[in-house]
């Protein structure tokens, strides 16, 4: 059975509900920098890291296009292929902007994914606690946190 895992426990329920309602196959919630907060459907860490990096890159590049057009950042991008579609959407929370990459199949539709993405972003915003005071990041902490994150995302 495909499971939903997250680093932040308050994300898990909204993400699981979103995946179920939208009929998504894969979902990845991350920061615009590519730091993964929660995932659904991925079985290998390497896929998560690659998808996060690519998702962050797309957000960054479309953000630049938006700037060129003098537009606010695009909130949702949708691409449809033969068998799969992807939605990449961003929304603001008390802890900053978050980005979600969703992969869906023929059993769902762009309309459904977008509809339930709106609900998901609202639920996450409501569930998101206020940010803690920033602490100094040390190199040793960074590696440990990265390993902790991967463990949490795959429950190893």
């Amino acid at each position: 059975m495909t499971r939903t895992y997250s680093i932040e426990p308050w994300v898990e329920e909204p993400l699981a509900a979103f995946v179920a309602e939208a009929g998504a196959r894969l979902a990845l919630l991350m920061t615009p920098a590519g730091q993964v907060i929660a995932q659904h459907g991925f079985t290998r860490a390497v896929d998560v890291m690659a998808a996060a990096a690519l998702g962050a890159a797309i957000v960054a590049s479309t953000g630049e296009v938006a700037k060129l057009l003098d537009e606010p950042a695009f909130s949702v991008l949708n691409h449809q292929g033969e068998r799969h579609g992807i939605l990449l959407g961003g929304f603001d929370t008390p802890q900053g902007r978050m980005v979600c990459l969703v992969v869906y199949g023929k059993e769902s539709t762009p309309g459904l994914v977008q509809l339930f993405f709106e609900e998901f972003s609202r639920d996450v915003r409501e569930a998101c606690p206020e940010p803690e005071a920033p602490k100094q990041v040390l190199a040793s902490d960074f590696e440990r946190e990265l390993n902790d994150s991967l463990s949490a995302l795959f429950r190893t």
Binding site: S108, T109, G111, L112, Q114, L115, E118
Partner: peptide
Amino acid sequence: GNAVAALTSSLAK
């Protein structure tokens, strides 16, 4: 509107 559209299309399918 977006909810009516998405839900009706899904039901119709």
